[in-house]
């Protein structure tokens, strides 16, 4: 849910990176953090377990610049991907403005992708949103792995509404900013429409 502050002349929006465990949501945020100007970004917060699995969420505030005299601030969140953290995932989707679904391209993870996408649909609905209506981008991550399933097949399996779809190798940055830009654009268009 966007927050427009006329006094400070800024607008805040919330983007959530969703997807199955170990698909690379946190890696997306880490790459964005590493490659953004210091003036643009805040601290990257990771609430993770000792083995670096996301426990609650990662959070990265990012200033994208000014539109019509308003500073646009994007708050990027990830959810914990592991199945049993569902209660936490639901909480993080509260007030979301746009969603990125990070899919794992490895063949063995296709079922997990499909399950996580269904889970996203359910949890959005519980928060009063419809995946059909919300700004949404799909990312096929880990394209460099030898067991990666073809893009066509993944698209057939995971495409939800003809959303913008990007191939990515998150640790190298391929597709990371393209994904972010695509979802940010949709959110801004949505604000215009309101």
């Amino acid at each position: 849910m966007s927050f427009i502050n006329y006094a400070a002349r800024e607008i805040n929006v919330k983007i959530v990176y969703y997807g199955p465990g170990l698909c690379g949501k946190t890696t997306n945020l880490q790459y964005i953090y590493e490659r953004s100007n210091p003036q643009q970004k805040g601290r990257l917060i990771s609430l993770a377990t000792e083995t670096d699995r996301t426990l609650f969420f990662d959070f990265l505030p990012l200033d994208l610049g000014t539109v019509r005299g308003f500073k646009t601030r994007f708050h990027l969140y990830t959810v914990p991907g592991q199945v049993f953290y569902d209660a936490s995932r639901k909480l993080i989707l509260k007030g979301v403005d746009g969603v990125v679904f990070v899919a794992d391209s490895q063949e063995a993870r296709m079922d997990a992708n499909v399950e996580s996408l269904r889970n996203l649909e359910d949890n959005l609905r519980e928060n009063g949103f419809e995946l059909k209506a919300i700004p949404y981008v799909l990312q096929f991550n880990k394209r460099d792995l030898p067991t990666a399933v073809s893009v066509d097949e993944m698209y057939r399996l995971l495409n939800y509404k003809g959303e913008p779809t990007y191939e990515a190798i998150a640790p190298q940055g391929m597709g990371v900013f393209e994904t972010l830009k695509a979802v940010a654009k949709q959110v801004l268009y949505e604000l215009r429409r309101k």
Partner: peptide, 18 residues
């Protein structure tokens, strides 16, 4: 009226951000 200052935002405005 539309409360959003973004009501008149153009594609160029959005592209300029990136």
């Amino acid at each position: 009226e539309a409360a959003s200052p973004f009501a008149e935002i153009t594609d160029e405005d959005i592209d300029a951000l990136f």
